[in-house]
Every structure is written in structure tokens, then in C-alpha cells.
Amino acid sequence: MQIYINNLTFAYGIKTVINNLSITLNQGDYLVVKGKNGTGKTTFIKCLLGVNEVKPGTIFYDKTDITNFKKWTTFGYVSQSLDNFNYEFPITVLELLNVSSTKGTMPQDRLKLLDKMKIFDIQNQNINSLSGGQLQRVFIVRAMLNNPKILILDEPTASIDKQNKEFFYQTVDDLNKNGITVILITHSDELEHLNYTHTLTMYDDYTNSFSIRNEGGEA
């Protein structure tokens, strides 16, 4: 699926947070969105997910305007904070994954993903007994459950330790190699180990720059 964003601008009241942002991504691209805290990264994601109304500017998925876009099941999303999730009520990892899977996904796929993310052993544990890192990986599994074409990860490694971080980035690389478009938001500058294809940098003054990675003669 092609993502085509043209002159996106977004403001909270009179405070403009995103200024004339234009990018085009093709299926299989890997975009890193970087910038300090408060530069509008999450706001940008909310625009992409149709939570924030895009005005002025346009976002097209393939040839469909975002306001008419219906195929949200092709997206996988891991949010920055777990605030949106009501995790104090008992529910096991497997129960959560079962209710989060759409028709056509097989139970063994869930187990495979849990195994891949190295959290197979905690499948019958109550969500609220997990550590931040385990919980984050459960949410990553949930985002990948329904074979998304586009995976959006908002600071997904915030509560993961170094070792798991490397493992996580490796997993994202593998998914990307299999043709999934990845949009990864980070405020860290350590990007050498990532195999991204594009970067979008968001600055303190709410301007932004989009660039294609230029490495070893690649265009």
C-alpha cells in the first residue's frame, strides 16, 4: 500500500505542531520518525491513524483519501504509552490475543508469534502481572497478529532493556524484509543498527525534513 502525504499541517488551537509535511512511502519502506519529545511525532501518528483530523493537507492510502479509508485492519499499531489499555482487570496474554485476532488467523500463528518474541512461557499469565518490557512485547505481538501491511510503532522500546531492544529491532527488520511497511517513532539518535530506508526529522520549531537514506551509493 502506498502512503502519500501532501502538505499536512496540524494545530492544537493556534499552536501549529506539524507544518507542511509531505512524504511518499511505498510498500516495504522503513521510515524512522525522529525528534525530541514534544516535536509532534505522536501527533503525526495520530493523523496517520485517522484520530486527528487532517486539515489542511491530504493523506492518501493507495488512492483512497484517509477520510474515506476503511481498511484499518491492514494496520498494526503499538502506542507509546499503555494509557489507552485498561490493564488492571484480569485477562491473560492468550485471552487478549484471542479477542484481538480477526477471522482467518489461526491459533498456532499466535503461538508462533509469542515464541518469536520470546514470551511463549507467559501466555497464561495475567496481563497485570507482567513487567513493562513483557507487556510491550505482548502489544507488539498483538499488532502483528492479523498480518498487517503497515506496522506503526510509537517509541516501542521505551521500557525494554538493551538486549531485548536489539532483538526487537532484528524482528522489525525481518518483518520489513518480508514486505511490511514499517514506521518507527523514536527520540533516540542511535539509528546505526536500524535498516531504515527513509527518515523524517521533526524539529523544535515544528519544521520537518524528509530524506531517503543514502548509503553506499544507493539512491
Binding site: L49, G50, V51, W72, T73, F75, G76, Y77, S79, N84, F85, N86, Y87, F89, I91, E95, L96, N98, V99, S100, S101, T102, R142, A143, N146, P148
Partner: peptide, 19 residues
């Protein structure tokens, strides 16, 4: 609709991506 009811209740934001 039990699956959907539980999914939305736990996480309204992500329910959108389940269609």
C-alpha cells in the same frame, strides 16, 4: 460478539485495527 465486546472494552484505540 463477545470477542469484539471484550476487545473494545480493554482498548478502544486498537479496536479500530480489528475492523
Amino acid at each position: 460478539f463477545g470477542k469484539q465486546i471484550i476487545a473494545v472494552s480493554f482498548d478502544e484505540t486498537s479496536a479500530k485495527f480489528l475492523g
